[in-house]
Design a protein around this nucleic acid. Structure first.
Length: 293
DNA sequence: GGTATTTGACCGCT
DNA sequence: AGCGGTCAAATACC
């Protein structure tokens, strides 16, 4: 119950902070920012609604409240099936996106192994100069595979949560560039981030080879954004910072000097302020159409 | 030296 | 049998 209330309060706070930021900054003139900000608020409320539904044992919502209108936008549409955990992840990064859960987002791929509860989200590739930056989803990912897909010009990349070994986090995602729109990525999230809910890491000595000194006393988790867990909610100004960047500040590997970093609020703030993005290198390889394609 | 990425091989599902 | 997903050795990077 507390968790549900926290979600509600968190959503209210997000809305209030959005209002404040719009009053205080020139962000109001930025349509992109407005869109992603509104999405974030809607997401927070829907997360709360799902929590309430679970409490009342009503069937989970099949559509996000208010999203029907948004779905008419060419920039954003949603198609959701039950899975509160999964959909909360899909929204971790905000930004314009299309979301579908349980597969069949495009109907193009059979995705036979796509699990129930998976969330498919299409996100635009952000361009910064010559670089194409995938939007940040707020988590840290480690690439574990790449595969040529039968009817796709571009390979599909497979990522798992960087903290899999340490927290036993089973979250995974697949990233693939769309054939018909190379400027768009289709990101499929599978599994939930246990690393975000577990205050204490799962100690598997043989597996926990990640920076022990850093993680050992680190009660933070692998994500920098609040999901619906207000107890670890960083300041919204940080989130807004990421939104301003199109959420591109962090992506695969959340690296600093090439290594995974569990960031503290200060580092996060600095990151948000200075757009210290490190993404791109991994995805670049994926984005480049292979010769012959 | 430690960690992340790449990539060929393997496994299981359809 | 073909394909998608994952593993793990090799390699790259810091």
């Amino acid at each position: 119950m507390d968790d549900v209330l926290s979600r509600v309060f968190g959503a209210c706070r997000l809305a209030g902070e959005l209002e404040s930021s719009l009053r205080l900054s020139s962000a109001a003139a930025d349509a992109r920012f407005l869109l992603s900000s509104c999405e974030h608020v809607v997401d927070a409320f829907n997360n709360a609604i799902d929590g309430v539904r679970m409490l009342t044992e009503l069937p989970p919502s099949t559509t996000f409240f208010g999203m029907a209108d948004l779905s008419e936008s060419p920039q954003l549409s949603l198609e959701v099936q039950p899975s509160a955990a999964a959909h909360s992840e899909a929204f971790a990064g905000g930004g314009e996106a299309q979301v579908a859960v349980g597969g069949a987002s495009s109907g193009r791929r059979s995705s036979r192994k796509r699990k129930e509860g998976s969330v498919t989200k299409t996100v635009p590739v952000l361009r910064t100069g010559n670089m194409e930056i995938p939007p940040d989803d707020g988590y840290t990912w480690r690439k574990y595979g790449q595969k040529d897909i039968l009817d796709s010009r571009f390979p599909r990349s497979y990522y798992r949560c960087t903290h899999k070994n340490y927290y036993g986090c089973e979250a995974k995602k697949q990233v693939q560039r769309l054939d018909d729109d190379p400027c768009t990525l289709e990101v499929t999230y599978c599994g939930s981030h246990t690393c975000k809910t577990s205050p204490t890491p799962i100690r598997i000595p043989s597996l926990a080879r990640s920076p022990i000194g850093k993680d050992e006393n680190d009660d933070t988790n692998c994500h920098g954004h609040p999901q619906a867990a207000p107890t670890t909610t960083p300041s919204t100004s940080i989130q807004l910072g990421n939104w301003f960047e199109g959420g591109s500040s962090r992506q695969e590997g959340q690296t600093q000097s090439g290594r995974d970093v569990d960031y503290c609020p200060v580092a996060e703030l600095a990151d948000a302020m200075f757009s210290s993005g490190s993404s791109g290198s991994i995805m670049d390889a994926m984005y480049l159409p292979r010769p012959g394609n």
